[in-house]
Amino acid sequence: MAANKRIMKELGDINSQPPAGCTINLPNESDINNWEVTMQGPPESVYADGHFKIHVSLPKDYPFKPPGISFKTKIYHPNVSNDDRGAMCLGMLRPDEWKPPNKIKDVLALVRTVLAAPQPDDAVETGIAEQFKNDKAAFENNARDWVERYAKGA
């Protein structure tokens, strides 16, 4: 498959030049379609001290279809769903926005940007978004609390 060559190249590139704050693992060496990323919270954000595990799944039509992103570590953030899926809603991952030349490192960079600067108007967790907008202090407390509780393991 043509996709394999692309994925192998991306893996190579990303390992020689990992995006800021990210380390990449293949949980199963023979399965290059499932990546496990550990992302360090962006410095100077409420998540700075946390390590977040993110599962990146590449569909079989990748790169014609966008990868799937799912937070395995719980995170208090308006744009990440607070459930088993830990889904993150990113514009570039929508089928009509995704372009095949887009790379996983671009996606990870965007994830990190959104961690640093939540987008409450585009939220999946509307409750958290409300709090983010109206009571920043409470939001930051909760976010730090969750980092303490869930994101210090690794």
């Binding site: 014609f64 279809k65 009509d96 372009k99 095949p100 030349p101």
Partner: peptide
């Protein structure tokens, strides 16, 4: 790329260039 847009996403009139 075009095949996927046409077949799966049902797009025709407004398919964009695959360039980023």
């Amino acid at each position: 790329y075009l095949a996927q847009k046409i077949k799966e996403e049902g797009e025709a009139a407004r398919i964009k260039c695959p360039g980023d």
